[in-house]
């Protein structure tokens, strides 16, 4: 494999593009759920906001904050894939995504509903960066479980 192939396992166009133009990068007024995610090891810091209706469907989801390309792209892609999903589906996706980034779910072999999110499948090879990818998901999961401060370190 050429060097560029291995590098772009992580920095693929989709990721770079979401980093450049993050989707749903804003604050929601009057969110039903929100949480702050913080990675003290690298200073990545973001807020995730959700607006969930009576039926438990995510009507709106957004994020803001600062972080590396991986954390920003991951947050952006998360908001895209969770919009319109139920809270149960969001929890399920969180679990799958978590397994994916630690190398415990193989998108070609294992059943999953990750869709485009499976682009992060190579990240387990970069242990220091796994936390960047999972940060927004932890914040989202915290928000829907009413935990408002989420750190990657506990």
């Amino acid at each position: 494999m050429s060097e560029s192939t291995s590098k772009h396992e992580l920095y693929q166009q989709v990721i770079l593009e979401h980093n450049k133009k993050p989707r749903n990068f804003k604050k929601i007024d009057n969110p039903t759920h929100f949480a702050e995610g913080y990675n003290p090891l690298c200073g990545d810091h973001l807020m995730v906001y959700l607006s969930v209706d009576d039926k438990g469907i995510i009507q709106e989801i957004s994020f803001e904050g600062s972080g590396c390309a991986i954390s920003k792209a991951s947050a952006s892609m998360m908001t895209v894939s969770l919009k319109g999903k139920t809270l149960d589906e969001a929890r399920k996706l969180f679990e799958q995504f978590h397994k994916l980034v630690i190398g415990k779910l193989h998108p070609e072999k294992d059943a999953h509903t990750l869709g485009k999110l499976s682009i992060f499948s190579g990240i387990w090879q970069y242990p220091a960066r796994v936390k960047c990818a999972i940060l927004s998901w932890h914040a989202m999961n915290g928000a829907i479980n009413k935990v408002q401060n989420v750190s990657t370190e506990n």
Partner: peptide, 29 residues
């Protein structure tokens, strides 16, 4: 336009080991 962590990972691909982060000096950052 490049976050230090992304830079750290990308230069590591070239065999270059640098440190990225707050270097245990958060007030200074």
């Amino acid at each position: 336009k490049i976050h230090p962590h992304d830079l750290g990972t990308l230069v590591d691909e070239q065999g270059v080991a640098i440190r990225t982060g707050h270097h245990c000096t958060m007030p200074l950052m």
